[in-house]
Design a protein around this nucleic acid. Structure first.
Length: 422
RNA sequence: GUGGCCGUAGCUCAGCUGGCAGAGCGUCAGGUUGUGGCCCUGAAUGUCGCGGGUUCGAAUCCCGUCGGUCACCCCA
C-alpha cells in the first residue's frame, strides 16, 4: 500500500495462498465434471489477431469497441488480448475441419477487458467455459445447460437462477429489432434518458433497463419471441421441454438479451443473489461462426471464476482455522537442530509435508510458528529424545503428546501423506 | 469512458476547526532457562499513496496525479 511499485496494474489482482487453494479445488472439480460429459481440455493462446474477435463477437459490440486490449506488435500486426474464450476455440475447431465436427472442449484461463473495475469485475478476469460443437439441435442446447448447472452445483452453489431465452436466427435479427423499436416508438417520451439513447444505439438493451417507468411500458409490449419466426420459437420450446424432462429448474425470460453477435437461438444467463450489480455468474448460448469457407456451429457457456468465488464465499464461507497436513519440527539445542534437518528429509521422502524454523529460537517461539503455519502436528526433539532415540509427537489440535519411536512416528503420521504410493 | 466515497504501521482504522504521527490487532522478546491458542509486561515497525501549491509551520487546506471501492455502462 505504501508504494505503486507494490501494486499490480489497475483491475489486475494478485491471487495469494488462501484463495488460490479454493481456485485450484474449483478447477479440479470442474475437470471432473467436464469429463462426465465427454469434454476435453483445450488451451488456446491469450494473444490473438484482433480481427478474430472483431469478426466473431461483432465489430459494433461494446466488448470489441470499448473494452478490448488491442495494440500493434513490432510487425504492425493488429493484436488483442482475448476478451473471451469462445472465439479462440472456434478458430481451433475451424482449423481442424471435419476432424472436430463433434468436438467437446473446455477451457480455463484469463480473459482481458479494459473496463473500469468494480465488484465482480476485473480487467484480468478468469473464465471456465465449454463448447459443444455441432449443428443446432435442441437436445444439445439442453445438455449444455445441464452441464452448466452441474458445474455450479458441483461447486456447492445452490442459490443460482437460470434464465433462458432465444435470440432468433441471424437473418431475422434486423427485422426483430426494427419491429421491437416500432412498438416502443409511441412510448418514446415516457422512457428514461438512457433508454431513449438505447433506442438508437442498441434497442434490445431497453429490455433490461431497471427503471420502473420503462419496465411498465415493456409490460404492454409482447415478448421478444413474438417477433421471431415460428421455427425459432419452436426451437426454444423444444429446448425447454428437454430441460423439464431433466428436471432442471429454469425460467423462461423474454427480456434476456446477450450482447455478443455470434449468438443465435438459445441464450441463457445464470445469476446469483450475492453478487451486487454484476450479478451474472455465467452465460451461454448457441452460436454460428464463419472462418474462411468453414462454418463452425455449437453451443457453449462461460463461468466467471471471480464471481463464483464471491458467491461461494457467501454460501459457504471458507474455514480458515482448519489445520493443514503439515508436520512442524521443533529443536531444543544445536544438536537437535541438525538432527531435525535430516528428519525433514526423511519425512518428505515418506510423502509428508514438513517444515521447521531454520535458526535457533526458543521452543515457545517455535511452537508459535507451528501454530501460525496451521500445522497439524509438531515433533519436539532435544538432548533427551536424541539420547533415547525417540520423538515427542504432539497433535496441535487435541494437545495430546507422546514419545514414540521411528516406526511408530511414521504410523501415526501416515494419514497425512500427500500421495499414497501404490 | 462518467460519477460518489476512500488512501495514515503488516492488517483494521482514529487523528482532518493547520502546531511533537496514534490505538487495537498482528509481529518479536520476556513472565514459564523444553510446549502453541488464554493472560500479563515490554519492544520494534511509518517516503501519512505520489507530485506540486498556500503557510513561520501541512497527515490536516487547495490543485493535479496514481490507486482502491461502489454505481452507471457493459458483461463472466
Amino acid at each position: 500500500m505504501a508504494s505503486d511499485e507494490f501494486q499490480p496494474l489497475q483491475g489486475m489482482a494478485d491471487l495469494g495462498p488462501p484463495e488460490v487453494e479454493r481456485w485450484a479445488a474449483a478447477e479440479q472439480e470442474a475437470r471432473r465434471i467436464f469429463a462426465l460429459y465427454g469434454c476435453e481440455e483445450i488451451r488456446t493462446p491469450i494473444l490473438e489477431r484482433a480481427d478474430l474477435f472483431i469478426r466473431s463477437l461483432g465489430g459494433e459490440t461494446d466488448v470489441v469497441q470499448k473494452e478490448m486490449y488491442a495494440f500493434e506488435d513490432r510487425g504492425g500486426r493488429a493484436l488483442a488480448l482475448r476478451p473471451e474464450g469462445t472465439a479462440g476455440v472456434m478458430r481451433y475447431v475451424a482449423s481442424k475441419g471435419q476432424d472436430a465436427g463433434d468436438a467437446r472442449l473446455f477451457y480455463i484461463g484469463p480473459m482481458f477487458r479494459a473496463e473500469r473495475p468494480q465488484a465482480g469485475r476485473r480487467r484480468q478476469f478468469h473464465q471456465i467455459g465449454a463448447e459443444l460443437i455441432g449443428a443446432p439441435h435442441p437436445a444439445a442446447d439442453a445438455e449444455a445447460i445441464a452441464l452448466h448447472a452441474h458445474l455450479l452445483s458441483g461447486w456447492g452453489l445452490q442459490q443460482c437462477r437460470i434464465r433462458i431465452n432465444s435470440r432468433g436466427l441471424p437473418e431475422e435479427r434486423a427485422a426483430i429489432q426494427s419491429a421491437f423499436r416500432e412498438r416502443l416508438l409511441p412510448h418514446r417520451d415516457a422512457l428514461c434518458e438512457d433508454c431513449r439513447r438505447r433506442m438508437e444505439a442498441n434497442v434490445l438493451r431497453v429490455l433490461d433497463c431497471k427503471n420502473p417507468a420503462c419496465q411498465a411500458i415493456l409490460a404492454d409490449i409482447p415478448p421478444l419471441t413474438d417477433f421471431m419466426s415460428a421455427a425459432a420459437r419452436a426451437y426454444l420450446d423444444d429446448v425447454i421441454r428437454h430441460l423439464e424432462a431433466l428436471e432442471l429448474p429454469i425460467e423462461r425470460s423474454p427480456n434476456l438479451v446477450r450482447g455478443l453477435d455470434y449468438y443465435l437461438h438459445t441464450v441463457w444467463e445464470i445469476t446469483h443473489p450475492a453478487l451486487g450489480a454484476q450479478d451474472a455468474l455465467a452465460g451461454g448460448g448457441r452460436y454460428r461462426l464463419q472462418f474462411g469457407g468453414r462454418a463452425v456451429e455449437g453451443v457453449g457457456f462461460a463461468v466467471g471464476v471471480e464471481r463464483v468465488m464471491m458467491a461461494l464465499e457467501q454460501e459457504r464461507p471458507a474455514n480458515t482455522a482448519e489445520r493443514l497436513p503439515l508436520v512442524w519440527l521443533i529443536a531444543h539445542g544445536t544438536a537437535a537442530l541438525a538432527e531435525n534437518m535430516r528428519l525433514l528429509q526423511t519425512l518428505r521422502r515418506h510423502q509428508l509435508a514438513a517444515r521447521m524454523c531454520l535458526d535457533e529460537r526458543s521452543v515457545k517461539a517455535q511452537f508459535r510458528a507451528a501454530d501460525r503455519a496451521r500445522a497439524s502436528h509438531v515433533v519436539v526433539r532435544g538432548e533427551t529424545e536424541i539420547q533415547k532415540g525417540v520423538f515427542l509427537l504432539k497433535n496441535l489440535a487435541t494437545g495430546e503428546q507422546e514419545e514414540v519411536d521411528m516406526p511408530e512416528l511414521m504410523r501415526r503420521l501416515s494419514a497425512l501423506r500427500l500421495h499414497e504410493k501404490t
